[in-house]
């Protein structure tokens, strides 16, 4: 019987190497494609840098960003105000009130925002005499005000659905418990139900803000000079595609920053729910 006491010459198995699977090759190719696209865009922006154009259209674009921002903020806030009675209507057991709220929300969610904007802006022109008589013509003559009005009504319908859905999602036991403690309905709503509902509603609200930023580009069609409007103006003067790319970069950064901020806020507000 032989007894071998030599140390093994075998090496330990090499760490498993990542194999070149089809998925990996595809992923690499696609990433290379994105990188190429990104680099060519950067190259285009750098090579096409034109101080004269920047001087002429830069301030206009900045002004456009400002217009977009207050258009969105104003619409969201007004929409939030309008959404409260609509949400109450959606939750109401009265078939008439419920029906009206449902009709409102169905109309504004079922038709394109562009068509609604045209309806308000151009449609008001049909009633010039009547609007002048009640002194509202100044309001409807201005494309900006028409855009704010349409966007507020539109986002109110979506926000009402978010709010109503979130309130419905609070378990009915919460209502019953508050009732049995003898709390008034008002107190129950504001101290018990809404704080729980708003946490559910947080994420959809964030989505709605982002959708509104994107939708606000539609205002440019009715001659509001927001970011998109100024971009269209500059493009019509120069036929330089760079301007659209700049606008795309600005929109992307805005949306992405907002999304991250919202995520941070959500994490902070729901920290008591995490284990």
């Amino acid at each position: 019987m032989t007894y071998v006491d030599a140390p093994s010459t075998e090496r330990p198995p090499a760490a498993a190497r990542r194999r070149w699977t089809a998925a990996r090759v595809t992923g690499l190719l696609l990433m290379a494609l994105w990188a190429l696209l990104g680099l060519s865009i950067v190259y285009m922006l750098v090579a096409g840098y034109d101080p004269e154009k920047i001087a002429r259209y830069g301030p206009r674009i900045l002004n456009g960003i400002w217009v977009t921002l207050h258009l969105v903020v104003l619409s969201i806030l007004l929409g939030a105000l309008i959404s409260i009675p609509v949400a109450i209507g959606r939750l109401s057991h009265n078939p008439i009130i419920g029906g009206i709220a449902f009709g409102y929300s169905y109309f504004f969610r079922g038709t394109p925002l562009l068509a609604q904007t045209f309806l308000v802006y151009y449609g008001a022109g049909q009633f010039t005499a009547a609007l002048k008589a009640v002194g509202l013509w100044m309001f409807f003559r201005d494309a900006y005000f028409c855009a704010v009005l349409t966007f507020s009504l539109n986002t109110a319908a979506y926000q009402a659905e978010i709010l109503a859905g979130a309130i419905r999602a609070v378990p009915s036991g919460q209502w019953q418990a508050a009732d049995s403690l003898g709390l008034r309905p008002f107190t129950t709503m504001f101290k018990i139900i809404l704080p729980q509902a708003l946490i559910t509603a947080l994420r959809p609200y964030g989505n709605e803000v982002i959708l509104m930023i994107k939708a606000s580009a539609i205002a440019s069609i009715i001659t509001v000079l927001d970011l998109m409007g100024q971009t269209r103006y500059a493009f019509s003067k120069t036929y330089d595609l760079q301007i659209y790319i700049w606008a795309a970069v600005i929109y992307l950064i805005t949306v992405e920053v907002l999304r991250r901020l919202w995520e941070m806020m959500e994490r902070r507000l729901t920290r008591h729910l995490r284990r």
Binding site: K214, A217, M228, A248, Y251, L252
Partner: peptide, 19 residues
Amino acid sequence: LRNAAHVYTTIFRGLPELL
């Protein structure tokens, strides 16, 4: 592959449809 797909979504969900 995952990252390439996420870049796609980030771009086309972030841009306004009109743009």
